[in-house]
Each structure stands twice: as C-alpha cells, then as structure tokens.
Amino acid sequence: NKFNKELQWATWEILNLPNLNEEQVKAFIDSLKDDPSQSANLLAEAKKLNDAQA
C-alpha cells in the first residue's frame, strides 16, 4: 500500500543521512513506525536537522 512504500522510502532516506547521530535516527524511525502517515513530514524534519548539523 501507499503508506508502506512511503514508510520504506523515508526509513531508507533517514538511515542514510550522514549528520544524524544514532539516537536521532532511532527517534525518527520510531516516530515513523508510530505514525506512517507522517512519513513525508518526518523525512523533511530529519533532512532539516541533518542540514543544520552539517
């Protein structure tokens, strides 16, 4: 289903952001699991944090 694909993509993207630490990655992944419908928003937040920590 649509959410599953978005969830998988967002998870992969977050796991490959170079500037997030392990705790941050885990928090984002946990949030994705809690509410897959928010995957696009969570991914945007993760990318923002990644850029801020570059």
Rank of each mutant, 00 (worst) to 15 (best):
N1K: 05
N1D: 15
N1A: 02
N1P: 14
K2P: 11
K2V: 14
K2N: 15
K2D: 15
K2T: 06
F3Y: 10
N4Q: 13
N4H: 13
N4W: 15
K5N: 11
K5Y: 06
K5Q: 14
K5G: 08
L7N: 03
L7G: 04
L7D: 04
L7E: 06
Q8G: 04
Q8M: 13
W9E: 11
W9T: 05
A10H: 05
A10W: 07
T11I: 14
T11N: 04
T11Q: 05
W12E: 06
W12L: 05
W12I: 03
W12H: 05
W12T: 05
E13T: 14
E13L: 12
I14R: 00
L15Q: 12
L15I: 07
L15K: 09
N16F: 04
N16Q: 10
N16E: 04
L17M: 14
L17H: 02
L17F: 05
L17P: 00
P18M: 09
P18F: 09
P18K: 12
N19T: 03
N19D: 05
L20H: 00
L20V: 01
L20T: 00
N21F: 10
N21W: 06
E22H: 14
E22T: 11
E22M: 09
E22L: 10
E23K: 10
Q24F: 02
Q24S: 02
Q24N: 02
Q24H: 03
V25K: 14
V25M: 13
V25A: 10
K26S: 06
K26G: 05
F28Y: 06
F28I: 04
F28T: 01
F28H: 01
I29M: 09
I29F: 05
I29Y: 03
D30Q: 15
D30P: 00
D30R: 15
D30L: 15
S31E: 08
S31P: 01
S31A: 12
L32M: 13
L32S: 01
K33Y: 15
K33Q: 13
K33L: 14
D34V: 13
D35L: 05
D35Y: 08
D35T: 07
P36N: 03
P36K: 03
P36A: 05
S37G: 09
S37T: 11
S37M: 07
Q38S: 11
Q38W: 04
Q38R: 12
S39E: 03
S39R: 06
S39K: 06
A40L: 14
A40T: 08
A40D: 05
A40K: 14
A40W: 15
A40F: 15
N41R: 13
N41L: 12
N41W: 15
N41K: 14
N41T: 14
N41I: 12
L42Q: 03
L42N: 02
A44S: 11
E45S: 11
E45N: 10
E45R: 15
E45K: 14
E45V: 13
A46T: 01
A46Y: 03
A46N: 00
A46K: 00
A46S: 02
K47V: 07
K47A: 05
K47D: 02
K47R: 10
K48L: 11
K48D: 05
K48N: 08
K48M: 12
K48E: 08
L49R: 04
L49N: 02
L49F: 04
N50I: 01
N50R: 01
N50P: 00
N50D: 05
N50Q: 02
D51W: 13
D51S: 09
A52S: 11
A52I: 11
A52V: 10
Q53N: 06
Q53R: 04
A54L: 09
A54E: 09
A54I: 09
A54Q: 08
A54H: 10
